[in-house]
Design a protein around this nucleic acid. Sequence first.
DNA 1: ACCTGAACACCGTTCAAGT
DNA 2: ACCTGAACACCGTTCAAGT
Lengths: 192, 192
Amino acid sequence: MTQRQHEALRADAQQNRDRILEVAHDALAASSDASLNSIAKKAGVGPGTLYRHFPNREALVLAVYRHDVQRLADSAPVLIKEHPPLDALRLWFGQLAHYGRIKHGLADVLHAATSDGLAGETYGPVTGAITLLLRACEEAGAIRPGFDPDDVLLVVGFLWRIDATDDWEARAGRLLDLVMDGLRTGAPGPQT
Amino acid sequence: MTQRQHEALRADAQQNRDRILEVAHDALAASSDASLNSIAKKAGVGPGTLYRHFPNREALVLAVYRHDVQRLADSAPVLIKEHPPLDALRLWFGQLAHYGRIKHGLADVLHAATSDGLAGETYGPVTGAITLLLRACEEAGAIRPGFDPDDVLLVVGFLWRIDATDDWEARAGRLLDLVMDGLRTGAPGPQT
DNA sequence: ACCTGAACACCGTTCAAGT
DNA sequence: ACCTGAACACCGTTCAAGT
């Protein structure tokens, strides 16, 4: 279960790193804007130690959710195998929705990561999954070709901004349908 | 040009209020997360004075952008008169995009205001404008009926999250087309 | 190599004291 | 009735000093 991150950290450093991630995971789940100082304190390390491992909040959050993001991304090919492409896409969006709701802190970070160069690291798999799903749909002739995965993710970003009312699932469903309809073949070109 | 906000503030209070709004407008345009303390200082008032007029950041931002929001809302009926409904909707989205880009600080606040009860005050006109546009489109048979204005605004929220690259207009255009296609009549019901 | 924790500049927010 | 500005608890971040 222990992971060698960069290669051969000193034993105590590795312990600190793991402990910080563990604490951060809980703290961020409880409140997505938990302060770094408070996380450090809960982890029993000085603030300097936290900053040594994670130079900024974004780096920490990305590290915390790395595994979850990977799991989400990995589900894409599975869905494609088990469902028609369009259904797979829609189902994956559904997972994305639930995912983004629980790990609430991730939303902003994901977007921030898009614009910066560091897409490849943690955020890349998400783009990869969308690419895969879009391609499958294209090949089946179910959606119009030429959509950019990042664009699609940007549009679907509303999922993270639906408030936690009790009908959020219905709302998310309706809005996902709206987007799906926009992606589909059959929507006309320009004008009425 | 001076506005009686709540009714009969004392003269110096009114001056302070105006001055704060003026400074805040510039400061927020320069950096959407300018601190309230720094705004108070630039306005030449103590922090307490700022808090007396605006109990929190949200209240200040809403007050600052009140007029701009109103102007945006007012353009909706004009567009409807001058264009076919679907074009009007699309054009209005375009204005919303430009608007949201310049007054960058407003984006989050708008969303925050949606969930809280205070929609009516500053945010209401936006919903009103969308309602108007959607209704015109429905009556022309151009879009499917039953869309919730808040839902539409939520989806279109990606406009505020497109980064300020030089092709953002093209990107925004593509994504708006996507949404428009989802709204249109002609998009099939369920399934491939 | 790595950790500690005091320290810095700053944040939002409050409130006694003034006029 | 309104304003001032010191004060509080906290934030992110740094860095000398320790082991």
